[in-house]
Design a protein around this nucleic acid. Sequence first.
DNA 1: TAACTATACGGAGACATCCTCCGGTTCTAC
DNA 2: GTAGAACCGGAGGATGTCTCCGTATAGTTA
Lengths: 179, 179
Amino acid sequence: MRADAQRNYDRLLEEAKQAFIVHGTDVALEDIARHAGVGIGTLYRHFPDRYSLMNAVFIRELDALTERAETLIDADEPADALFVWLRSVGAHSAMYRGLSSAILAQSDGRMLQCKARLRESGGALLARAQEAGAVREGIEIADLLKLTSAIVLCAEKNPEDRKTFDRLMSLAVNGILVG
Amino acid sequence: MRADAQRNYDRLLEEAKQAFIVHGTDVALEDIARHAGVGIGTLYRHFPDRYSLMNAVFIRELDALTERAETLIDADEPADALFVWLRSVGAHSAMYRGLSSAILAQSDGRMLQCKARLRESGGALLARAQEAGAVREGIEIADLLKLTSAIVLCAEKNPEDRKTFDRLMSLAVNGILVG
DNA sequence: TAACTATACGGAGACATCCTCCGGTTCTAC
DNA sequence: GTAGAACCGGAGGATGTCTCCGTATAGTTA
């Protein structure tokens, strides 16, 4: 990769991250290119579409969540550890309006790397909680992550109610029926 | 309302419903107008924006769900009745790709009529299930509807897995923790 | 039934966004 | 220094939303 190409790639990634945080992931790609000081053509050459750019931005952010999972894997209460981690995932997704929606869309495999990484980290926590008998058998990490993303989506569509995420999350964790 | 205006209004509503089912709620409004045999200007005069049209289409569909709730209010198992009804809501939303997303968006009050109607119907079922001691206190119908919409959203983003809705719904109902 | 007027119609067009294409420029290897 | 591969960037086609206003028509009155 030529030096100028590398420089532009890095700038685009950084600007995209900022723009996603400030304006959500459906920000105009032209804006990102302009702020990065490059033309729109350059953006599209490096990242064939919006999801390719999103994937590149977010894959770099997953290290923190993976590390968090590794720290939590030895916790005293495996079920709590799982929920703490899921909440971290939610908090991360919530930083970027639209990210949850993209992660949920299974059909297009463009965010596949991100999703595989999350399943790997969370799967270990879930397995341990199930071995400890604290979480129901038959539950799969993919479904837990879907539910978490869905709840983030709810929360971001109700920005005036800051507690939405916590309420719905505890609903899902404790169930609706009297135990 | 002039006769031609009424005729066009009805045609638009019917075409919009079909288009929403076939192509999802983000179908091009021009297509709806064309199929209804009117110009795009006519569509926008009757329905100032896409949500206004959606609201008009779906408010007519809610009678069935309201009736269902009235039937279920005397069921033997109040908690089951609530979940049966929530599943019906989910099944209805699932007919129209994008409807759940619109219903979730609290901030814009454009689907307000639809949401108020759903809360009214579901609220009675929830109250009865709680009085019977079968559903946890503190749970609100608005949150249950949000969770249901969120799960529909998940399901419609995973069209290859038909069981997604049922699995996530039972997750939420039974909880994740061992009871 | 014919003229009149308020109302509705409909499409051209302004604007926004996505994405592609290709002529011109810049870097790098020799 | 130069040749050419790699890269840049913006013009422009495609699609979609929504507005504006000249034209057509339904309904009313004489």
